[in-house]
């Protein structure tokens, strides 16, 4: 009841605005799935004939399926490694009083505010000078760099949300640090870990700019799509692919956000 006061009473104009805002966010994106059912190669209203053939084509599109597999591999490795780094970092900054904590967090979060192109070319120069061939490995490296800040942020919320006396109790009862981590800390932060894995996977799966600079001959799915955009006759295939990607990432991200925010004992949970 604490939020309910005469200041917080319903505000109809603002509600209308909020609905319009959500429409602005979602309606443009919905045109992609809409036109993916269009039988014509050209995007134009009105849609004369509806079809599923662009989706059927996808199943036989070998290069696209190869790109999809590449993206899944890169995403899996990048999300696991970034979450791993995120667990270390989040536990350290939430459980220990460390001098210089703020600048350290700022360094780890820095990739959030560095333009993608700058990160991309800087990493490209390093990889080139080190004599490493561009491949899916270099893309993965770049993706880890952009995923760690999100993993840290997600996991820090979770670590802050549970009582550190649980860990102390475990230590007092004779568990060593390793077992305390496995049997107390990890189960408590597990929703955060899962959310971080899902979020990092989505980020990596959708990431284009770093993949563009650091990718070798094997394309990830966004790179493959970028290549297809040059050919107008391939447009319906891109639309069908895009519709699938949108649908899947919406569900994955919704689930991961729900995991982070749902918990009642988390101080950040809104309710």
């Amino acid at each position: 009841m604490k939020n309910v006061s005469y200041i917080d009473r319903p505000n109809r104009p603002l509600f209308v605005y909020a609905v319009l805002f959500l429409a602005f966010l979602y309606v443009p994106v919905l045109f992609l799935p809409l036109f993916s059912f269009n039988d014509s190669q050209y995007i134009a209203f009105p849609i004369e004939n509806w079809t599923l053939r662009w989706y059927r084509d996808m199943a036989n599109n070998e290069p696209m399926l190869a790109a999809l597999m590449n993206s899944i591999r890169v995403g899996a490795v990048a999300s696991i490694l970034s979450t791993f780094l995120g667990i270390f970092g989040a536990k350290a900054v939430t459980r220990y009083r460390i001098p210089g904590q703020e600048p350290i967090i700022a360094v780890i979060m820095a990739p959030l505010v560095i333009p993608g192109i700058i990160l991309g070319v800087a990493l490209l120069i390093l990889i080139n000078r080190a004599g490493i061939t561009l491949s899916l490995y270099t893309v993965t490296l770049g993706h880890i760099l952009v995923c760690v800040p999100f993993a840290m942020a997600t996991l820090m919320t979770r670590f802050e949300g549970f009582d550190k006396s649980m860990e102390e109790a475990s230590a007092d009862l004779g568990e060593n640090a390793w077992w305390t981590f496995w049997r107390v800390t990890l189960p408590m932060v597990f929703p955060g870990v899962l959310a971080s894995l899902l979020l990092c996977f989505t980020i990596s799966f959708d990431e284009f700019i770093l993949a563009f600079f650091l990718g070798g001959t094997d394309p990830t799915l966004p790179l493959y799509m970028w290549g297809q955009l040059r050919f107008p006759q391939r447009l319906p295939n891109v639309l069908a692919m895009g519709a699938c990607i949108l649908l899947i990432s919406f569900f994955v991200v919704f689930f991961s956000q729900w995991l982070v925010r749902r918990d009642p004992d988390s101080p950040k949970s809104a309710g």
Partner: peptide, 25 residues
């Protein structure tokens, strides 16, 4: 409230390339 927050931020996590491409469409 949670649903609103997720709804507001959800599009940010979905494909950047597709969100740009949709405006071309």
């Amino acid at each position: 409230k949670m649903i609103w927050i997720i709804l507001m931020t959800l599009p940010f996590w979905t494909s950047y390339l597709l969100r740009i491409f949709t405006w071309k469409v």
